[in-house]
């Protein structure tokens, strides 16, 4: 769930945000539907006030009996402490880790690698995968694969990879790149960006070798229902919790 001012939103290629509903209500709905994990990204946090986030995290965590990851605007171990105290199980970090990679090792040492998810937004420019910041607004010149290897060495526990080329397109996940990432590191890689139909999920587990798949709008707008998706994946011999 991409969250702004306590509501879930999902952008098409990260602009033209549409409102997809109340965050607390949706969180409880997805847990009941059989979602395996909930990821909460405060997408505007890096450049807008984020006071409401902690309260919202607390409200959601009270309702939720599945793993809960929170990200957006996290730049210090103190930020992480506050979110974990509010009931988050993991945090995802992005821009702050690129600006200060040592944040990854500081967090891993203080809270354990298991709660440090490194989120990375990347775009394929002239055949090279480059890391982008601030929801895709800022180019860094950093190579995706080098960055992910470094993040793993520093103690990241999971990689949440969003392809900016695929996000919002509903044409499927960036499977070739995902497979390369997944084989390169020894930590779980979560596929994000591009889900449009159920086949796309099967493809990202099989071809993309993803350890998990993340989607937002197809669920928010009920184009795909979680129970139906899981049944479908099971018929494709992909192990899922039903």
């Amino acid at each position: 769930m991409d969250v702004k001012d306590g509501r879930t939103v999902k952008g098409v290629n990260f602009v033209d945000l549409r409102d997809a509903g109340d965050a607390v209500e949706l969180a409880a709905y997805y847990a009941e539907q059989g979602a395996d994990e909930l990821v909460f990204l405060d997408i505007t946090a890096t450049h807008e006030k984020r006071k409401t986030l902690v309260e919202l995290v607390q409200k959601v965590a009270r309702e939720l009996n599945i793993p809960f990851t929170v990200g957006g605007g996290i730049s210090t171990p103190e930020d992480v402490g506050v979110l974990l105290n509010a009931g988050a199980d993991k945090v995802s970090i992005n821009s702050a880790a690129v600006r200060n990679p040592q944040l990854i090792s500081d967090l891993a040492k203080r809270f354990g690698s298991q709660c440090v998810v490194l989120a990375v937004d990347a775009k394929c420019v002239d055949g090279n995968w480059e890391v982008f910041l601030n929801g895709g607004r800022l180019s860094t010149g950093i190579d995706l694969f080098e960055w992910i290897l470094k993040a793993e060495q520093l103690g990241a526990g999971e990689i949440l990879f969003t392809s900016m080329n695929h996000d919002g397109t509903k044409n499927g996940f960036a499977n070739e790149t995902l497979a390369k990432l997944s084989e390169m590191v020894n930590i779980p890689v979560i596929a994000s960006g591009g889900a449009g139909n159920m086949e796309h999920f099967a493809d990202t587990f099989i071809e993309g070798k993803a350890d998990a798949a993340l989607a937002a709008s197809v669920f928010h707008f009920k184009e795909i229902e979680v129970p139906e998706l899981k049944k479908y994946l099971k018929t494709k011999n992909i192990p899922v919790r039903i």
Partner: peptide, 12 residues
Amino acid sequence: GNIQSVKYAFER
């Protein structure tokens, strides 16, 4: 760590 999640689970 993670005491809140456990606490909330019992509260539910």
